[in-house]
C-alpha cells in the first residue's frame, strides 16, 4: 500500500483538473449526457474524494460508500449545476459533507429496521495490521467528531480547507462568501478544535 505525501496529493489532483480537459468542460459534456465525460471526472477525483470522505468519517468502509453516493449525486445534479471554479472537487467535497451529516441523522432510524452487524464481525486475519489501523482510524474519528461539533459556518470551512486541503479562495467561491470570512471562520474553528481535541498550546 502506498502512502502518498499529504502535502501534495490534494494539490496534484487539483492541478490535473486544470490541465488538458478542464473539469468545467467535462462537467458540461456530462450534463449533455456524455457518460465518458462523467467517467473522466470520476477517474480524476475518486481518490481525493475517497480520502476526504475518510477524514470526514474515520472509516474506510463508509468512505467508500459516501464516495460512490457523492458521485451518484453529482450525476443526478450535473445538469443543474454550473461549476464556479475550474475544479469540481470543492463541490464534491461539499456534497460529501452533506451526505455524511444526513447519514449521521438517519443512522439511528434505519438501524431500528435493519439489524446492525456487530462491530467485531469483520476483521482481517492479521492482528498487527488491524491494531495499526485501529489507532489511525480512532484518531481520525476523533477529529471528525470534533469537526462535526463546530458551528455550521466553521465546520464547512474546516471540512473544505483543513480536511480537504482546498485553498481559502476555492472555499470562499464555493460558499459564496469573502475569502477573509473563510479565514476568520478557520481561525475560530482552529481554536475550538484545539480545545475539543485537548491539544496543549
Amino acid at each position: 500500500m502506498t502512502i502518498t505525501d499529504p502535502s501534495t496529493r490534494g494539490a496534484s489532483e487539483l492541478d490535473a483538473s486544470r490541465t488538458a480537459d478542464p473539469d468545467t468542460s467535462l462537467w458540461r459534456r456530462a450534463a449533455a449526457g456524455e457518460r465518458e465525460a462523467f467517467g473522466a471526472l470520476f477517474e480524476r477525483h475518486a481518490e481525493a474524494l475517497w480520502n476526504h470522505c475518510y477524514r470526514l468519517t474515520g472509516s474506510w468502509a463508509l468512505a467508500e460508500d459516501i464516495t460512490s453516493a457523492t458521485f451518484l449525486t453529482a450525476w443526478a445534479k450535473v445538469g443543474g449545476i454550473t461549476l464556479v471554479r475550474e475544479s469540481a472537487l470543492p463541490w464534491l467535497y461539499a456534497v460529501a459533507g452533506n451526505i455524511v451529516r444526513t447519514e449521521n441523522r438517519r443512522t439511528a432510524r434505519f438501524a431500528r429496521a435493519v439489524r446492525r452487524l456487530p462491530e467485531d464481525g469483520t476483521a482481517e486475519d492479521h492482528a498487527e495490521a488491524v491494531a495499526h489501523r485501529v489507532d489511525v482510524d480512532r484518531r481520525t474519528r476523533e477529529v471528525a467528531t470534533a469537526v462535526a461539533r463546530l458551528p455550521r459556518a466553521e465546520r464547512e470551512a474546516v471540512e473544505l480547507c483543513l480536511l480537504g486541503e482546498l485553498s481559502t479562495v476555492d472555499a470562499a467561491t464555493l460558499l459564496g462568501i469573502a475569502e477573509a470570512s473563510v479565514r476568520a471562520r478557520l481561525s475560530r474553528a482552529r481554536g475550538r478544535l484545539r480545545t475539543l481535541l485537548e491539544v496543549t498550546p
Binding site: D65, L72, K77, R106, F110, V114, L117, D120
Partner: peptide, 29 residues
C-alpha cells in the same frame, strides 16, 4: 439517483461491508 443515494448511504451506515476495513470500536478483538 437522488432517491437512490439516500438509502445507499443509510445502508452504508448500518452495514458492515464484506471484506472492507473494519470500523474499530470496543468490540474489536
Amino acid at each position: 439517483v437522488a432517491a437512490a443515494v439516500a438509502l445507499l448511504v443509510a445502508c452504508a451506515a448500518v452495514l458492515m461491508p464484506i471484506g472492507r476495513t473494519v470500523q474499530p470500536g470496543a468490540g474489536v478483538s
